[in-house]
């Protein structure tokens, strides 16, 4: 299964990960596709794929805790929120938004994301 790309030298490859039912909301699976380690996350029924190499120092980003965080505030409150939307890198604890790969503390850092879809109940990643 391949799709045509407008750039002839770059082909997008589609990879079947598993049945969508195998990764329930709040869960993740680390898969190896195309020689890469990728974290596949189910956040409230939607699937996301993050490269399992932290842009900080190459750590196992996708293997850290799935959690929430303290929400931005203008006061001095600690309001916990976004539970299940954040992964903390297993190495140095940097927080990343699972849904878009953005590092929460520094907009200059992003975890690489991959397109991911569910087709006929099957999770498919494009690399």
């Amino acid at each position: 299964m391949t799709t045509n790309s407008t750039v002839a030298t770059k082909k997008t490859r589609r990879h079947v990960v598993c049945d969508a039912s195998e990764i329930t909301p709040g869960e993740r699976r680390i898969v190896n596709v195309d020689g890469r380690s990728i974290g596949v996350f189910n956040v409230e029924g939607r699937f996301y794929a993050l490269h399992n190499g932290c842009p900080h120092k190459g750590g196992a980003l996708a293997e850290g805790p799935i959690c929430g965080t303290t929400l931005p505030t203008d006061s001095r409150d600690f309001a916990y929120g976004r539970d299940g939307h954040i992964v903390r890198c297993a190495w140095h604890g940097w927080e990343f938004d699972i849904t878009n790969g953005q590092a929460l503390a520094d907009r200059a850092f992003h975890a690489r994301t991959y397109p991911i879809t569910v087709e006929d109940g099957v999770v498919i990643i494009e690399t």
Partner: peptide, 18 residues
């Protein structure tokens, strides 16, 4: 400070920048 904040931002959620 930048490096520790990047890892431990959640301690000071009132900060918006490095």
């Amino acid at each position: 400070l930048d490096e520790d904040y990047r890892a431990l931002r959640k301690e000071t959620p009132w900060l918006k920048r490095l």
